[in-house]
Design a protein around this nucleic acid. Structure first.
Lengths: 230, 230
DNA sequence: CCGGTTTTCGCCTTTCGGTCGAAAACGTGG
DNA sequence: CCACGTTTTCGACCGAAAGGCGAAAACCGG
């Protein structure tokens, strides 16, 4: 009573081949053999949940390639995992820049979030939550930096946002919105045009000071500008 | 190994006497005797965390007076609670409308979030997270309904928002923003003026259809209007 | 009836996001 | 080397959203 297993799971998302994809591995053993599940594992005695998920993910990918990790939610339905002991899960959202292609074990693969294979336990619900969280935060924070390469053209960034949000966004507007918030910075270099010609695209980067998630953009603002006191 | 106690805790917030306050109870026993802590308790074997926090809160207040409950985060530092077994906590944010004054046990009291008494364990950090979450969501969702009475004047609502956000908001603008989103509705009635006179204030309510948290307002919107596909 | 008080409402300005189209800067093919 | 297609960039326009102000409305007490 009161004792239960605790596991950590992560929906690691990346935009690859133009679609938002999630890293899954195929279970070899029962329960749910041959179904696909999120990477993760049991919380160790001497680590907090965030250290734990990073440790578990290290078995699947190079953790240095993870540009962002944040808690999603606790999943705790008593029977979410069959077995003798009850298992509570802390789910995380992980992000990988689209410029990387992490090497993954042979039982692991990427799947588009909109076309998942048969999933284990409640992992599909976790992926859904991850998608929603990502879409929300792309809108009102600077989380885009975690999906983007170190340098990118505006149209490449537009593709990233479209894939992650699930709808088209205007390149003009995207650039203006991000620039106005001081998140975007031109590198000075340009990318070569494609095989069919066209004007060379300027390269941008997210300003380095902002490589973390900033506060969400408030709609009801303070009169001049103040913060939430200590 | 892998087995740990799991507790649920809630930062129950309410605007009372013009300031944002949190419900705390004074510990009688060690550890941390006479320090103040958040209500909560051990997760039961046959309930999920949300059912658990509602059950635990029922020992402190009438749960029907809780207008909103949502997960905040997991707190899992290995030594966050001293003792033989490791204790992981799922923290919740709870809200009570300012019109209610729940009866609480004798060991329980309300404290302004900006002037907390000595707190137990990591509960102060949890309260801070709750404040931040509330302030954020007030801006870009309709969460205000959970703080407000069934009917209220605009200036009363302005006071609520100011207390919860920590800065002054304009009554004119607040009314316009909420109205434009279709969240506010006049009841038709008016409130009597104060002792020093003044024009009687019109009473409003949050439209009943919206007594739940709606999706945050997206900044980068789809071209016409679509949703996140299934 | 008059001054004090509080709310309400219209108006103005600024900012923001969405859209469009022209201009710029490339390759290609005649 | 010039016309053409292609792609990016940027300015312009527009409506919507938000902040601010002050006049008018509606009450009180004297």
């Amino acid at each position: 009573m009161g004792l239960a297993g605790h596991e950590v799971l992560a929906a690691v998302l990346q935009v690859r081949a133009g679609s938002l994809q999630v890293m899954l591995w195929e279970r070899a053993k029962e329960p749910h053999a041959h179904r696909w599940s999120l990477p993760g594992g049991t919380l160790g005695d001497h680590e907090d949940v965030e250290a734990s998920i990073r440790r578990q993910l290290a078995e699947k990918v190079d953790v240095r390639q993870l540009s962002h990790v944040e808690q999603l939610a606790v999943f705790s339905a008593p029977s979410r995992v069959p077995g003798l002991t009850r298992v509570v899960a802390t789910a995380f959202l992980g992000l990988v820049p689209s410029s990387l292609d992490p090497v993954v074990p042979s039982d692991t693969a990427w799947y588009p979030v909109s076309a998942l294979p048969p999933t284990a336990f409640d992992h599909e619900a976790i992926v859904l939550r991850a998608r929603q969280r990502l879409a929300s935060k792309l809108s009102y924070t600077n989380l885009g930096f975690a999906l983007a390469p170190p340098a990118f053209t505006i149209s490449a960034l537009r593709s990233l946002y479209s894939a992650a949000l699930g709808y088209k966004v205007s390149a003009t507007n995207l650039q203006r919105v991000l620039s106005r918030r001081g998140l975007l910075e031109p590198t000075g270099a340009t990318a070569p045009p494609g095989p069919s010609g066209g004007r060379p695209a300027a390269l941008f980067r997210f300003v380095s000071r902002e490589m973390r998630v900033t506060d969400p953009f408030a709609v009801l603002r303070p009169p001049s500008s103040r913060s939430l006191g200590p």
